[in-house]
């Protein structure tokens, strides 16, 4: 065994790794591999919860993410809102988290999709605004959304005046809740209002958080989940399958570079370990 080769395999220059990673991402984006993506039961349940949501009740889209995680959370928010709009369900947007970017980003996404689906602000969708403290806000909204939020976030008009709020007094009057999040905010929904609401709570976490949510899926406290960007791509595939979307978009395209990057990761880990064992073997032989 060539000891120096084994040594080199353990110590590839980081800049080479970075260039390979960047190249893989660019190539993957330009030449997507047309392989189908299996739909996970969790994404299917999220989709089904929205599909079964009553059209005479409003839905809550809770956003707890900033541009730092938009690579995952933006497509999740888009597919969820698109699905709601395709079913003509009224949308109330709530924004939380450490960064108020969430409300602006959500308004931007919803505003863009609203043009496509002819959704009118105040009649079909509304932005309730951003709140620093989610726990108190949710507890209050369980009793009276209008009293907690008072005005909408875009026009600053009293919330009760908007037609979209007709029949919506509290969280108990909501048909489906979906939170797209980069934080552990699901605990607030589950812990403070989940059991008092009749609406299913669906979740779109970043991939980092997704594994810790399976326990809540098992207990039924969360009805469905989008596993990061992969979950968003699965949801997009379901939208295509159900005819809401004509063809898959960027989210599905992004799965190829993600796949290639993960393969690269495992190849690198394999090389590093092979190098280590080869070097050890060579050392043992003297």
């Amino acid at each position: 065994m060539d000891k120096s080769l084994a040594f080199r395999m353990q110590n590839i220059d980081r800049r080479i790794l970075y260039i390979v990673l960047l190249a893989i991402v660019v190539i993957g984006l330009i030449f997507p591999i047309p392989l189908p993506l299996a739909i996970s039961p969790q994404a299917q349940k999220f989709f089904d919860a929205v599909e079964k949501a009553p059209t005479n009740k409003a839905a809550i889209v809770s956003v707890v993410w900033s541009a730092s995680t938009q690579g995952e959370n933006r497509p999740q928010t888009e597919v969820f809102i698109r699905h709601l709009m395709s079913r003509r369900i009224r949308i109330l947007i709530m924004a939380f988290g450490g960064d108020a970017q969430s409300v602006t980003l959500a308004q931007e996404i919803t505003g863009d999709l609203a043009k496509e689906y002819n959704y009118e602000y105040g009649k079909d969708w509304i932005s309730l605004g951003y709140r620093l403290d989610q726990t108190g806000t949710l507890k209050g909204a369980l009793l009276d959304i209008v009293q907690v939020y008072k005005t909408d976030s875009k026009e600053r008009r009293p919330l009760g005046e908007w037609p979209v709020m007709a029949g919506v007094k509290s969280l108990k009057d909501i048909g489906v809740v979906g939170e797209i999040s980069a934080s552990g905010a699901y605990k607030n929904w589950i812990g403070l209002v989940g059991s008092a609401m009749s609406a299913p709570l669906c979740y779109g976490p970043t991939s980092v958080m997704a594994p810790e949510l399976y326990t809540y899926l098992d207990s039924g406290q969360i009805a469905g989940m989008m596993f990061g960007i992969k979950g968003a791509a699965e949801y997009e595939a379901l939208l295509v399958k159900s005819g809401v979307l004509k063809k898959a978009g960027f989210t599905t395209r992004a799965i190829t570079p993600i796949s290639l990057a993960l393969v690269l990761l495992f190849v690198l880990i394999g090389l590093g370990n092979w190098g280590m064992y080869a070097a050890r073997k060579a050392e043992a032989k003297g």
């Binding site: 403290d133 726990t135 108190g136 806000t137 209050g140 909204a141 009276d144 907690v148």
Partner: peptide, 9 residues
């Protein structure tokens, strides 16, 4: 609760 929630915010 809604008032205390707002106060907290």
């Amino acid at each position: 609760v809604p008032t205390v929630a707002n106060f907290q915010n």
